[in-house]
Amino acid sequence: MKIKVRAFASFREMLGSELELDLPDESSVQELLDALASLNPRFCSEAFDRSGLLKDYVLLMKNRKRLDRDSMNQALEDGDEVAVFPPVSGG
C-alpha cells in the first residue's frame, strides 16, 4: 500500500516536503516511522530519542487529524496521509 508523508519545518529539509512510501498492507504508524528513520539518519536522530521512541513533542497527524502516542500501533490504509512536524520554539 502507498502512504503519503508530509514533512514540515526542519524535517522537510531531511525528508523533502512530500514523499510516498510503499509499505506492506496493514503496516502501523510505528512501522511507517521506522521506515522513515531508515531513510535518513539525521531524521532518525532528530525525531527519536535514544530508546527509539518518537520524541514526545513531535506532532503526528493522519489524514489531517492529530495522532496520540497511544495510536502508534494503529494500522494504516492505502492512500493515508501522515504528517510529521517538529514545532519550533524560538522567538
Binding site: R6, F8, A9, R12, S17, K65
Partner: peptide, 17 residues
C-alpha cells in the same frame, strides 16, 4: 507554518483536546 526555504505556507488543522 512558514517555510522560508520553500517560500511557502501550510496549515495544520487542530482542535480542542
Amino acid at each position: 507554518l512558514w517555510d522560508g526555504l520553500a517560500s511557502s505556507m501550510d496549515e495544520l488543522a487542530c482542535e480542542r483536546r
